[in-house]
Amino acid sequence: MNASDRTPADLLRSVFAADPSRPLVTYYDDATGERVELSVATFANWVAKTSNLLQDGLAAEPGERVALLLPAHWQTAVWLLACSSVGVVADLNGDPAAADHVVAGPDRLDDGRACPGERLALSLAPLGRRFPTAPDGYDDYAVEVPTQGDVFRPWVPVDPDAPALAVAGTELTGAELVERARADAERLGLRAGSRLLSGLGYDTWEGVCAGLYAPLAAGASVVLCRNLDQLPAEALEKRIESERITDRVR
């Protein structure tokens, strides 16, 4: 990727410019059998719509904090890049009471109600389905995001030296995140075209880097597997073959 890239949003723009049609995130949930594959272009479109929702719908401003009460999931990856695009801090499993906004999955709705600001709920159901009825105190992301614009422009340029990500007690600026992602990509042996299978959660730097940032920094792609421990060994080997996996972390 470009040496001048200093934020995760910069990395996404670079991979889009290189080849928008290739796969970027392939997601499996081995508890439900769900599989979703997003090309760079499709992922970038979700990021643009979510960024517009964050900036215009939630009125989030650079420097504010968004608590992401979400598991390792393709929509979580979208939210991480949307936060970077707007310039807000993505606080993975952060304290909702200390956040300006909260985005919660179905099993964290009660926790998220401690947030005094805007709240969005994600059903995390296959195909991004909406809730039958929006949870009390929340807007439904799947209802709100489709009407958002496909092109995003931040109100002010994102500062690479401002805080961008908080995870497991570590807070990184955009520039620090990109630097660490590049180093981890090299450590993992990733290169352009690599296919990394990750069964790690998004509750540590190692997990979120392997499950998103390192492949993005290397021009590679990730096969993100939730509940991988429920997959029999023989089925895992078939997945490694069918998905053309070159590297894996578990």
Rank of each mutant, 00 (worst) to 15 (best):
G112L: 11
A72P: 07
V25N: 13
P215M: 03
L224N: 07
A192G: 13
A217W: 00
L196I: 00
A192K: 10
L70R: 12
A18S: 03
A17C: 11
W205N: 02
L231M: 14
Q148D: 00
R119S: 12
A72E: 09
L122M: 15
V151C: 00
A82N: 01
A121C: 11
T133K: 14
L228Q: 06
D100M: 10
E237P: 03
E243G: 04
P23M: 04
D30Y: 08
R13E: 04
N93E: 15
R195A: 00
D95P: 13
P135C: 05
C115T: 12
L172D: 01
V15R: 09
A181Y: 03
T26P: 08
G193W: 05
P132G: 10
E206T: 04
D150Y: 12
S84L: 07
P135M: 04
A164E: 02
L190G: 10
W79Q: 00
A192D: 12
A18G: 02
V145G: 01
D95T: 15
V78F: 11
H73E: 13
L92W: 06
L70T: 14
K49I: 03
L38T: 04
G94D: 05
N93S: 11
P154D: 11
A77D: 05
V178A: 04
R180Q: 13
L228V: 09
S21T: 12
L80P: 01
A60K: 12
P126T: 14
V249P: 13
S14A: 04
A41H: 03
A134K: 10
G128F: 14
R248F: 07
A98N: 11
W205C: 01
P146H: 10
